[in-house]
Amino acid sequence: MNGKERILARVRRALADVPRDDRPYAQAVRRDYLRQHDERGAEDLVDLLAENLADYRAVVHRCGAGELPGLIAHLLGERGAKSVLVPPGLDETWLADTDVRRVADRPESTPHELDRVDSVLTGCALAVAETGTIVLDGSPDQGRRRISLIPDHHICVVRVPDQVVPSVPQALERLVPGRPLTWISGPSATSDIELDRVEGVHGPRTLEVVLMSG
């Protein structure tokens, strides 16, 4: 017998005492927990998102669509960034006001090359207000997973209120499981030294989230 047959045979023997249960899975689990914890309206949800992002040390900015290029230029300038990684489908107007060198997200770039880029600018798939989380799903405005990982400075633009969901259950409903997903809640952190949280280990140590309305 191969490994698979042996394991499956052991599982079946182990469950010999368990009475058959042919209920469909939908009925097997009682799901009387809440779909969301906060019943506020769309605008208040954006406030909650901003609050929770900031609580885990993300830097939060708010602007209208027209102000975005100016804000991006300001953030890159303030950081002293010389280069910025740009996903293939990013709205080019977002970078209209800055002349920082653009680096394309290309499959042949090596991790070492990406390590020399100062910043990365992406959109997102959605944001979760209750937990202060942004989710990337590899869409053209977000690029490959590694581009939002290696540079030390990540600017992520969230379109509010459209891209904001209240809770984790509602986020999962909107996401496509087959895509590579990265859930980000604040900058990289660790609790490994005396169980105290310290920000800034391997991922971007600075996470700036721009909540763009309109």
Partner: peptide, 29 residues
Amino acid sequence: FLQTLPRSSTAERMNPYTSMWTGTTDGDG
């Protein structure tokens, strides 16, 4: 579990990074 695990583990609303992948993705990872 994405609600109960981080709160029980590191006592956070959500841990900084959660990765989800399904098999392989062309050109990514």
